[in-house]
């Protein structure tokens, strides 16, 4: 697989504190290295506040990282100012979580779809654009198109609006779409069909997806042949092929996260406690040099307060010092991973 986008050493600090208080910067992303391959699906999973949405906005260019390099197909995105991003970065598009907020409430669906195509295809006639919009509507499965195009966002259901967002995102023929929790506000019975639609766009159009979510179950569904990156307090803790990570989670945080996900089968119930030392999420402000998960980690040792590097096994990279120890302790307790 050829790499499509590479993120190197991305750091993001937000300035906090106002006029009178002392300036403090919050380090929300720390040393993120990530490669997104052509046509692949990467699931970015983590709890709220782990920086996954910030990372998504950096990929789409809405935020400029404090440090680091972004390159799309070898072409560097000058990160100092968004304006300077080369136009090729139009190939990176964004699907937001709240489909109602993502569409202008006073513009019809047609207007919302028409404007971007018009802007970037100035030579097209209206008819060409209309044909394109028709194709998009067929692709996303809203038929007959005319019935939806004349409507305003509030006249559509959440699932339909989310489909419109997908149509808008693919209207500029992107190579990569960042989807930020696209189904979390959608009814359960419709989620699957939307995820299927995304898989279909991925397969038919070869569009790579970065699927940002806190829900591991949907991440597993959409990125079953893709990759999973687990984030915690601004760092990628574990990253590798989805099936490998899920069948054998190595990082203590990934282990806890997988245990916490409820399984829709009462026979799989267990009253087992999560392998965590503390349930409280430690603040992002007061983390030190070392592993951000250390304060909650049951396997923590003194070394964990020093900076950690990735360990790579079976194509999975893990940011943990005590992997062997964790492995040994878990093997000793025969509870098995979730199979």
């Amino acid at each position: 697989m050829n790499s499509l986008m590479t993120l190197e050493h991305i750091n993001m600090r937000f300035q906090k504190g106002g006029f009178f208080s002392k300036d403090r910067s919050v380090h929300v992303l720390k040393d993120i290295d990530l490669t997104i391959g052509e046509g692949e699906i990467l699931a970015l999973v983590g709890e709220s506040g782990c920086g996954k949405t910030t990372l998504g906005k950096i990929i789409t260019g809405l935020y400029v990282p404090t440090e680091g390099q972004i390159a799309l197909q070898g072409e560097s995105g000058e990160t100092i100012k968004r304006k300077k991003r080369p136009l090729s970065f139009l190939q990176v598009q964004f699907i937001q979580q709240d489909s109602y907020a993502a569409l202008n409430p006073v513009r019809t669906i047609y207007q919302s779809l028409y404007a971007p195509i018009r802007m970037h295809n100035p030579k097209w006639s209206k008819k060409q654009i209309d044909t394109k919009i028709d194709e998009l509507m067929t692709l996303i499965g809203l038929q007959p198109a005319a019935q939806f195009l004349s409507k305003y966002p509030h006249q559509l259901s959440g699932g339909q609006r989310q489909r419109i967002l997908m149509a808008r995102a693919i209207s500029l023929d992107p190579k990569l779409i960042v989807a930020d929790e696209p189904v979390s506000m959608i009814d359960v019975s419709l989620r699957l069909s939307l995820l299927n639609l995304m898989s279909e766009l991925n397969e038919r159009l070869g569009i790579a997806f970065v699927y940002i979510t806190h829900d591991l179950s949907t991440a597993r569904y959409i990125a079953r042949r893709g990759r999973l990156a687990v984030m915690y307090l601004g760092e990628i803790m574990e990253e590798g092929a989805m099936d490998v990570v899920l069948s054998h989670p190595r990082h203590p945080y990934t282990r806890a996260l997988l245990k916490a996900v409820p399984v829709p089968d009462p026979d799989a119930r267990s009253d087992e406690k999560l392998p965590l030392k503390s349930m409280e999420l430690s603040g992002i402000e007061d983390r030190g040099e070392g592993c951000p998960f250390a304060p909650r980690c049951p396997y923590m040792t003194e070394q964990c307060e020093r900076p950690v590097d990735y360990v790579v096994t079976e194509g999975v990279r893990i940011k943990c010092r005590n992997l062997e120890e964790v492995e040994r302790l878990n093997a000793a307790r025969p509870e098995g991973t979730d199979e």
Binding site: R82, Q93, F94, A101, A102, R107, A115, M119, R168
Partner: peptide, 25 residues
Amino acid sequence: RDFIQICAVMRMSKFHIIVKELFPN
């Protein structure tokens, strides 16, 4: 708001954003 932010991702002109997206609201 999301629908203005997406305009930046889609590289819409300032003129479009102000006149077509913001003003009607």
